[in-house]
Amino acid sequence: MNIPCILIPALIGLICGILGYLLGRMKCNTDDSLAMTLQADLDACQINTKNLQARISALETEMAARATITAAAQSFAVPTAAHLTFDPDLATDILGQKIKENDLKIVEGIGPKIEALFNNAGINTWYELSEASIEKLQVILDEGGENYAIHNPSTWAKQALFAYEGKWQELKDWQENLRAGKE
């Protein structure tokens, strides 16, 4: 039997086995460092999340405090309907038509159907209309359908405020410059 024919493959196998073992060990060490890096990133993200949650809580507390202060200030600053009296004779003299209190139709651009939409949405007075945002009014109109969605309520709150405050001449002057309730 020829010994070199047996010995050479055995030595090559042994060398390949040792190289495979060493390469595998090196690969495992690399995976451990990657896992350690990922764990460090995860820990940093968790700390950042806790910090952000604490900041959100602080901001929510601050917003609640400001809302309370704002509500308290508004309760003192905003006049209610009881403070302003409606003078139908003055309104009739200036506008040249008989006016009923809280008739939303005196607002240029609002007719009976739009008034009914607003009444159904909880806007029944000039004051409530004057406090409504343009976005809220547009949502009400959009929900009414295509025929109402085309209207532009951008001046309605200001017109309603004039009516609420009894500023009939200012309302009349401003309405003369409007076209279908638009500037």
Rank of each mutant, 00 (worst) to 15 (best):
M1V: 10
I3H: 12
I6H: 15
I6R: 15
P9A: 10
P9T: 09
P9I: 06
G17C: 09
L23D: 03
L23F: 13
L23Q: 07
M26V: 04
N29H: 08
D32E: 05
A35V: 07
Q39W: 02
A40Y: 07
L42R: 12
L42Q: 10
A44H: 07
I47W: 04
N48H: 10
N51T: 10
N51F: 10
L52R: 12
Q53D: 08
Q53T: 09
R55T: 08
I56Y: 14
S57P: 00
E60W: 02
E62T: 14
A67E: 07
T68Q: 13
T68L: 15
F76Q: 06
V78Q: 07
A82G: 02
L84Q: 08
L90P: 01
A91E: 02
I94T: 13
L95R: 11
I110S: 03
K113F: 11
K113H: 07
A116Y: 04
A116F: 03
A116V: 03
L117G: 06
N120V: 01
G122S: 03
N124P: 00
N124G: 05
W126C: 00
S130V: 01
S133I: 07
K136F: 14
L137P: 01
V139M: 12
L141P: 06
E146R: 13
Y148E: 03
Y148M: 07
A149L: 05
P153W: 08
S154Y: 04
A157W: 06
F162D: 08
A163M: 12
E170M: 13
K172V: 01
N177V: 04
A180H: 10
G181C: 04
